[in-house]
């Protein structure tokens, strides 16, 4: 068992998030990275043993290449202000710990929700006077993966009340709305049929606690919004843009569905 996982296991045992059932070492390792909230299951628990194994071992988890990219960029000064993330935030292990569990968040200055990619880009444009990174660029994926990785094992906990409430309601409506020629809503696959096979794939609950995830099919790490676009397209619906209000609202609802699940970034999926 690796040091980091051992520490996580201890954390969970003491906070009581993980009920230790003595099911054997393999499963205990798995659950440390895929903490199970009440009745809610991470995509990890539906993945094959091989895929789980890739995720469990940081040395073989290909998503760590993106964590490394983000780590390099963290202390790199860019833009007219001549600053790096590190200049303002210091040690990411401390300063970013909460960020990974709490986005998307309502932001007063924009009067709507903001997700973590957008927060990173706001820091670039406002505080660093640097250009925003493109969605799905190795830089934005790297930084998002690095930031969320600081919250690994901590339970997802997003605010859905107060000013976030109307956006949350829109996200929920999106999740339940049929779309495309196949006329299916997210809920048909991920609520009504989680655990059932759709042709060769086992449907999961469609949780996002592992994002950005390394998908074997993509051969790289991808964002939550890329996954939403994929699921929209497979029912032959027109997807929304990465970073669109529609997807950020949906993201809040989906994050809330997985409340309490441990952050797994970078998770590995098929």
């Amino acid at each position: 068992m690796k040091m980091r996982q051992l520490l996580l296991a201890l954390t969970f045992a003491t906070t009581g998030t993980l009920a230790v059932t003595g099911l054997g070492l393999g499963l205990v390792i798995g659950q440390t990275t895929a903490a199970k909230a009440e009745g809610i299951r991470s995509g990890y628990s539906y993945a094959t043993k091989e895929t789980q194994g890739l995720q469990d071992d940081d040395m073989s988890n290909p998503g760590y290449l993106w964590v490394d990219t983000g780590e390099d960029l963290w202390s790199k000064a860019e833009g007219d202000a001549g600053k790096s993330c590190n200049d303002c935030h210091g040690d990411a292990a401390e300063s970013m710990k909460k960020a990974g569990v709490s986005y998307p968040k309502y932001k007063d200055d924009i009067g709507k929700l903001q997700n973590i990619e957008q927060r990173i880009n706001q820091c670039r444009t406002d505080n660093m006077k640097a250009k925003a990174w493109k969605w799905e660029s190795s830089q934005l994926l790297g930084m998002t993966t690095y930031v969320r990785n600081q919250s690994r094992g901590l339970p997802v906990s997003v605010a859905v009340d107060g000013p976030a409430a109307p956006f949350f309601a829109k996200g929920e409506a999106f999740f339940n709305q049929r779309r495309g020629l196949l006329d299916m809503a997210c809920k048909h696959c991920h609520e009504d049929n989680a655990g059932n096979k759709i042709r060769a794939n086992v449907l999961s609950e469609g949780q996002i606690n592992g994002f950005p995830v390394y998908r074997l099919k993509w051969g790289k790490v991808g964002s939550t919004h890329r996954r939403f676009r994929g699921c929209n397209k497979q029912v032959r619906a027109k997807p929304f843009k990465n970073g669109s209000d529609e997807y950020v609202n949906l993201e809040l609802y989906v994050a809330w569905r997985g409340r309490g699940l441990g952050v797994e970034t970078p998770a590995v999926r098929n």
Binding site: Q177, R179, G180, L181, L182, N232, R236, A237, K238
Partner: peptide, 14 residues
């Protein structure tokens, strides 16, 4: 009667 149908499927059935 579809929502956000992709262009190439407009007016078509499966």
């Amino acid at each position: 009667g579809f929502t956000r149908l992709q262009k190439k499927w407009v007016g078509k059935s499966i």
